[in-house]
Nucleic acid binder design. Structure first.
Lengths: 207, 207
DNA sequence: TAGATTGTTAATCGATTAACAATC
DNA sequence: TAGATTGTTAATCGATTAACAATC
């Protein structure tokens, strides 16, 4: 069974962003062609993507902006953020701790972990930094299911294993390495090297 | 005409990472099946991906590790980094300025720009922060073709227009908005909201 | 009504995967 | 030789796009 394809899910936040602008400028009704124009996609794709959220429009008229916003937010779980632990309070980890907007995007970072004794006990952007030894116990007690991995590549698999053992089922990884996890664990890798490769190597020309 | 597909290009840095580990552990020859095992892909995909780089292996034996490394690096342009300007020295921008590894991945950040007078004139991780007014003149004089966009969403399109006007043809954007650019400009969007949506909404189950 | 847009089906496109002859 | 792997072609799979009847 599948609930939607990945490319569609990735486009939903873009629609949401545009729909909120529409709402803020007083537009109550929109349409697939209008969203297509604003995103650079074609209307068929927009319709397919929105179908996934279960929100239905009115034939001949279009879609209600508020309903669409609520529908997408519900589908993405943004109306009900999940608790997450972050491991690795380096520069990137600290930057992520400072992103308040994630809280409105389904992610509530409740604690951070780092093996550096200098960092343990400090508070970074309002989040307490704890010793890695406490990870498993706390994750289980607080029923935390989401882990953010911002450790150096060399430590990534080791920390992943600890996460999995602790009941984490979704891992947002910023490590460059491929992680091996059991089948029930979802890993989303943000791969800057891949992004850079795509940006610079791209000699792909559409004909 | 096309030189390769995007998914393949995005996988190349992963192969590179593994190949370097192979080399460092004294392995001189590898194979598509071996790389498939290390990445979790299937051998056919590995062969297709490597075909793109032009490196040819030996039937029945496999591929030379050093040749593959050199071939991928050359294909990605990592052996010959391009100069880039970064705009928006906030938390994320500063973090990116601190990523020395980008220099080995084809990207050489030579200057940063920010409209905050407190930041102008300072040096962040070895990179000078300048006033945005100087962007166009410097980009043209130094023939900089790559721009990194780490400004708030509200300023993203405005800065994009300035980049395009200044001769930038590749934009690595960390803004959440859709940017409109002329056809000759390549934009690669690192979309954390999309990543998060994919991570959390994913109820997709492979059957 | 005429114009516009919906939801959905069918056609197209592109990427992944399997298969295999060639060959070390 | 027997086993393994190459490069490449053909089959499969999944996502994008076009088309259209229904309908406001």
């Amino acid at each position: 069974m599948r609930v939607g394809n990945l490319p569609s899910i990735r486009r939903l936040p873009v629609y949401l962003h545009i729909l909120r602008e529409f709402r803020d400028s007083g537009t109550a009704v929109t349409s697939a062609p209008a969203l297509a124009a604003a995103t650079g996609l074609v209307a068929s794709v927009v319709r397919k993507d929105l179908e996934m959220t279960g929100v239905v429009g009115t034939t001949g008229i279009g879609d209600d902006v508020d309903k669409l916003i609520a529908g997408i937010e519900a589908f993405l779980g943004w109306d009900n953020p999940r608790d997450a632990f972050l491991v690795g309070v380096g520069r990137l980890g600290a930057t992520i701790l400072g992103c308040e907007e994630f809280r409105a995007q389904g992610l509530n970072i409740v604690a951070a972990f780092d093996s550096d004794p200098e960092k343990i006990g400090t508070t970074v952007h309002g989040v307490k930094v704890l010793a890695p030894a406490a990870f498993t116990r706390l994750a289980r007690r607080m029923h935390v299911g989401v882990g953010i991995l911002t450790v150096p590549n060399a430590d990534a698999q080791k920390m992943t294993d600890i996460m999995v053992k602790s009941g984490i089922v979704r891992i947002w990884s910023f490590a460059g390495t491929v992680l091996s996890v059991p089948g029930h664990v979802v890993v989303r890798r943000e791969d800057f090297s891949a992004g850079l490769a795509e940006l610079l190597a791209r000699t792909v020309v559409k004909v």
